[in-house]
Amino acid sequence: MAFVEPVILSARGVRLEPLAPGHEAGLRHAAADGALWTLRITSVPEPEQTRAYIDTALQMREAGSRFAFAVVEEDTGHVVGTTSYHDIVPAIRRLEIGYTWYARRCQRTHVNTTAKLLLLMHAFETLGCALVGWRTDNFNFASQRAIERLGAKKDGVLRHHALRRDGTVRDTVMYSMAAGEWPEARAHLLYLLERQAQAE
């Protein structure tokens, strides 16, 4: 049995469902909102590469190293982005959350906070993870702030670690949250969502 089994997670109008070929058109449309593939610090697929992006995610799921979700607006049924569990290591109950991107109209809304709450709840409370990690480009300051808002701790920087789409090599900033830190982080995320709900 796989460490991460297929599951649908939902709250506050946001639904995470296992990424599948049927999400191709929705993902392509989401990426077009902001031409996200033109950003050098992200890994959003170009429109014609969307199917290959999904196929790669499914191959990684088969190998047990990644489980990708489509992020769907429940009231419209529109796909607004994607996020994944990855670098899954069942033996030590560790995984990371990443491969995350959203249509521009959903950025800096409750969508990402809700998705992260759902993923963290499932990781710590259902899968029994001891630790959840994140990694991001050293120049992706928005991503770093978003990860820190979740309550994650900065572990350090892996220098000259990974290729960007433009052929340059990035440093990777690593973060993590341990199971013992989850209750406080959970309370804070719920507080943030209440604040966002009042503001939207």
Rank of each mutant, 00 (worst) to 15 (best):
126 T>R: 13
124 F>G: 08
137 D>C: 00
97 I>M: 03
127 L>W: 02
193 L>S: 08
34 G>D: 04
173 V>D: 05
148 E>A: 14
163 L>A: 12
58 L>S: 09
115 A>F: 08
173 V>Y: 01
96 E>V: 02
12 R>I: 00
3 F>W: 12
69 F>P: 07
188 H>Q: 13
18 P>N: 07
91 A>I: 04
148 E>R: 05
142 A>C: 02
121 M>W: 01
149 R>V: 01
191 Y>M: 12
5 E>L: 04
118 L>V: 03
139 F>N: 05
13 G>Q: 06
194 E>K: 15
185 A>C: 15
127 L>R: 03
44 V>L: 09
42 T>S: 06
29 H>W: 00
69 F>Y: 14
172 T>S: 15
5 E>G: 00
169 V>H: 03
4 V>E: 11
2 A>D: 15
55 D>P: 06
152 A>F: 05
32 A>G: 11
19 L>F: 01
29 H>Y: 00
73 E>K: 00
179 A>F: 01
6 P>G: 02
173 V>R: 08
157 V>F: 01
151 G>K: 07
2 A>F: 11
191 Y>S: 14
184 E>W: 02
40 R>V: 09
47 P>M: 06
25 A>F: 00
130 A>I: 00
115 A>N: 11
186 R>W: 01
108 R>Q: 11
153 K>Y: 09
24 E>S: 10
146 A>L: 03
38 T>A: 13
67 F>V: 08
16 L>T: 03
184 E>Q: 12
61 R>V: 01
197 A>I: 00
2 A>Q: 14
68 A>R: 11
81 G>H: 08
11 A>P: 04
100 T>G: 12
48 E>N: 05
5 E>H: 04
176 S>P: 06
98 G>K: 04
51 R>P: 00
115 A>I: 09
164 R>M: 15
16 L>I: 01
87 D>G: 11
156 G>I: 08
158 L>W: 05
140 N>L: 05
82 T>I: 04
88 I>N: 10
123 A>F: 05
66 R>A: 09
57 A>R: 13
2 A>I: 02
166 D>C: 08
14 V>W: 10
178 A>F: 05
36 L>W: 03
112 N>D: 03
90 P>I: 02
153 K>C: 13
57 A>T: 06
55 D>T: 14
24 E>L: 01
132 V>P: 08
51 R>A: 13
40 R>T: 10
47 P>F: 06
112 N>F: 07
131 L>K: 15
80 V>A: 11
125 E>A: 05
